[in-house]
């Protein structure tokens, strides 16, 4: 099976130029061709792993555990204004 590289790249929100796509296609097909050996394994009745030790997800009390660190957290953002994240216009 041949992977549609540009379609998957769009799902992953990565722009690929044609050269990159041309280089990646055979590599991805080779990787997927290798993992296709899994298809031949009989896994009837086998429970898929969810956690390596089958541990349950812990719950905690619904209380605030971190203070207001907006300035520190937004200091690493590419663009902010008045405490908001700025992105290109979404709605016309």
């Amino acid at each position: 099976m041949d992977i549609d590289v540009q379609k998957v790249a769009m799902l992953a929100r990565i722009r690929l130029n044609d050269d990159e796509a041309t280089e990646l296609a055979p590599q991805l097909n080779e990787i997927l061709g290798y993992v296709d050996q899994l298809a031949a394994v009989n896994t009837d009745g086998i429970t898929p792993t969810a956690h390596p030790h089958d541990a349950a997800m812990p719950l905690r009390a619904n209380v605030v555990t971190n203070g207001n660190r907006r300035d520190a957290l937004q200091a690493v953002a590419p663009k902010t204004e008045s405490g908001l994240y700025v992105v290109p216009k979404v709605i016309e």
């Binding site: 992953a12 929100r13 690929l16 990159e20 991805l28 992105v87």
Partner: peptide, 20 residues
């Protein structure tokens, strides 16, 4: 913004794994 930032930011192996 998403697609170009991620294209510029990620190297070839990371792209391979994300796409896989």
């Amino acid at each position: 913004m998403y697609t170009r930032s991620r294209d510029e930011g990620f190297g070839a192996e990371v792209k391979r794994r994300i796409l896989t």
